[in-house]
């Protein structure tokens, strides 16, 4: 097991290296620099700025300097928001995205599991068709459509929730639902399929034959097994929720890392882009690793292949 984990960890090194290199050259090969758009900056100041941020060095020198700093865990200062370093910005913004992601995960599990199990217990009736049609809608309707429509109905017309912001508890309802909806839809489909499979098993038939009540059958015998597909989905879902909130944060003006990344991309804030991309990449790789470990733990064949 330890060897498996170490091997997977070693495989991440080249992936991470590719991401660093790709991002670094992508953003620097493009015309225009972070200070190109600044109005009325005297020649001398511009020169000092470029010197300070190491932008006057040849590209390959900048690249190796960046790698060296990165090896020391230093992501450098932000070009456009110099009050904090990139690491400090991430430390400030990421907890917001994390909170949003957790709420969205809660929404996804609560609605998804309930809908999925309900549908599985009464297959091919209205209790099955209605939630499953909604799940199809949840998968097909993108969050940048769902978000504005929710705002329109619940914030502007009914005035139940604020339009945007992230201070009060009620601010957090609409963004969490918007982000969680698609995942709720997947959870519903997965848990329905899992539950149906469990209910068709021999041990469920045996339990019923022994006279266990329907509630008992579902709760004690089928529930855990029926949730297995959802458990394996949790890894990718968590990664997706944490790294996929650009749009939701932009719509609802949530001060999270996703919005920071989009702004940095528009502002050509080199170090901030690099920092957030690497942070996101690290997160995704970490969640991949966790999923692999869980799978290897559940199924020894994965470990040996």
């Amino acid at each position: 097991m330890l060897r498996f984990v170490l091997r997977r960890l070693l495989e991440f090194v080249p992936v991470f290296f590719i991401i660093v290199t790709l991002t670094f050259f992508l953003i620097r090969l493009a015309p225009g620099g972070p200070f190109a758009a600044e109005r009325a900056v005297p020649e001398e100041v511009l020169k000092r700025l470029n010197e300070y941020y190491n932008l006057d060095a040849p590209l390959y020198v900048q690249y190796f300097d960046y790698l060296r700093d990165l090896a020391h865990g230093d992501l450098g200062p932000s070009f456009k928001k110099p009050t904090l370093t990139v690491s400090e910005w991430i430390a400030l913004r990421f907890p917001v995205s994390l909170e949003l992601g957790l709420y969205a995960l809660g929404v996804a599990l609560l609605i998804g599991l309930a809908a999925g199990f309900l549908a599985a217990l009464r297959p091919n009736t209205a209790t099955d068709h209605v939630p499953m049609s909604l799940a199809m809608a949840g998968i097909c309707i993108p969050n940048f459509v769902l978000g504005p429509l929710l705002v329109l109905v619940f914030a502007l017309w009914l005035e139940w929730f604020p339009v945007a912001g992230w201070d009060l508890q009620q601010d957090k309802v609409l963004p969490s639902i918007t982000l969680g909806a698609a995942y709720a839809a997947y959870v519903a489909r997965l848990s329905r399929a899992g539950m149906l499979e469990m209910l068709a098993q021999d041990f469920v038939r045996t339990a019923r034959a022994k006279g266990v009540s329907e509630t008992g059958v579902v709760l004690r015998h089928a529930l855990w097994g029926g949730m297995q597909p959802v458990v394996t989905f949790l890894g990718p879902a968590a990664a997706g929720l944490l790294t996929g909130s650009f749009v939701v944060e932009t719509i609802f003006q949530v001060p999270g890392l996703g919005r920071e990344f989009i702004q940095a991309a528009f502002n050509r804030d080199y170090t901030m882009i690099m920092g957030t991309v690497l942070f996101y990449a690290g997160l995704i790789l970490l969640f991949n690793l966790i999923v692999d470990i869980v799978q290897a733990w559940l199924d020894p064949r994965v470990r040996l292949s």
Partner: peptide, 13 residues
């Protein structure tokens, strides 16, 4: 395993 959405965003910018 590459975060493609992010790379496409950068590419487009």
């Amino acid at each position: 395993t590459l975060p493609f959405t992010i790379l496409v965003i950068i590419l487009m910018v």
